[in-house]
Amino acid sequence: MDQIWRFHSAEEADATMCLRSGSTSAADFYIDNGRLHTGTVDSVTESMVEAWKADLSRGDTSVMIAATRDQVTTLARAAQAWRISTGAVKMTTTSLADGSVVGIGDLVVTRRNDRENTYGRGDFVRNGDTWTVTAVDKTGALTLSREGTHDQVQVDAEYAAQHVDLGYAVTVHGSQGRTVDHAHLLINDTTGRDQAVRGAHARPR
């Protein structure tokens, strides 16, 4: 990558290029602009969830990004717990691939292409698609509404148990191509520069 796209701010664009090249000036930019927040694992995780909640409360779209699936699951379950407390999610007994129990109203992501399960104008369930759960039947099958559309599809209980995760948080790789108003990236001593660059390039609206 040698060109920057989608940035309104030239300084922001320059910072991402510095991050890519390993220049410490990238960190200076993010610190000076209040983008970096440090603390313990628990405190930073809590801060991320609070920032994500604030985004949603303003009516914005938001996603939390982390390097590992364990971190993603922790963040996603915290987000789900908050949505349950607000009445936005009604819990069921159906389990997902990440070990979480899904509720009606939950945001989820499909993790495997299923070309035989089509919807809309011939589109099919894809790896990385984001959906809202609108119904769960007695077999554990999920009725899903495609994010940003009125299209719906049903995935059976086996697919849900093996290839559907909560969608409030994603890995760095899983964030690629996702369009949101805000993104929050969890960084620790295991986060590589490539992951930080990819997370910093989460696509804004």
Rank of each mutant, 00 (worst) to 15 (best):
I4A: 08
W82N: 06
L56A: 10
D123I: 01
N188E: 09
N117D: 12
E46Q: 10
H184V: 05
R203E: 15
E147A: 15
R205C: 14
A27H: 08
R111I: 00
V136Q: 01
M48F: 07
D106R: 05
V133E: 08
D181Q: 09
F124C: 08
T171Q: 00
S43G: 10
T68W: 01
E158P: 06
E46F: 05
M1T: 12
T73K: 09
T93E: 12
V197R: 02
D114I: 08
I84H: 00
G87T: 11
R205W: 12
C18V: 07
H201Y: 14
S95P: 03
E50L: 10
H163V: 03
R77P: 03
D129N: 13
Q162D: 11
D32N: 15
W52N: 01
S145D: 07
D106Q: 01
G87W: 08
A157F: 13
G120N: 11
T171A: 02
A202K: 04
R35D: 08
V136G: 01
F29K: 02
Q152W: 02
T94P: 01
R121E: 14
V180K: 02
H163A: 09
D106A: 09
D189V: 00
Q80Y: 09
E158N: 14
E50M: 10
S100L: 05
T139W: 13
M1I: 11
A157Q: 15
V49P: 06
V102C: 08
V63W: 04
I4Y: 04
T86Q: 13
D137P: 01
V72I: 13
T149C: 12
T38R: 00
E11M: 09
Q154W: 06
A76L: 01
W82E: 06
T68G: 03
A15Y: 00
G99Y: 07
R178N: 01
E46P: 04
G128A: 15
G99W: 10
T16A: 11
N113S: 14
R20Q: 15
A79Y: 02
H37M: 13
T149P: 08
R111T: 09
G140E: 06
A51D: 13
H182E: 11
H37F: 15
S85G: 14
Y30A: 11
K90G: 05
V164A: 03
H150S: 14
A76R: 04
A88Q: 09
T149V: 08
G99T: 08
L56R: 15
I84T: 10
I31Y: 11
H173Y: 12
I65C: 04
G105P: 05
T40I: 09
N117E: 15
G174T: 07
T68L: 04
V63P: 06
R83Y: 01
I84W: 01
V164K: 03
S175V: 00
G167S: 07
Q154Y: 05
T118H: 11
G177A: 09
A157G: 07
D42E: 14
L75E: 03
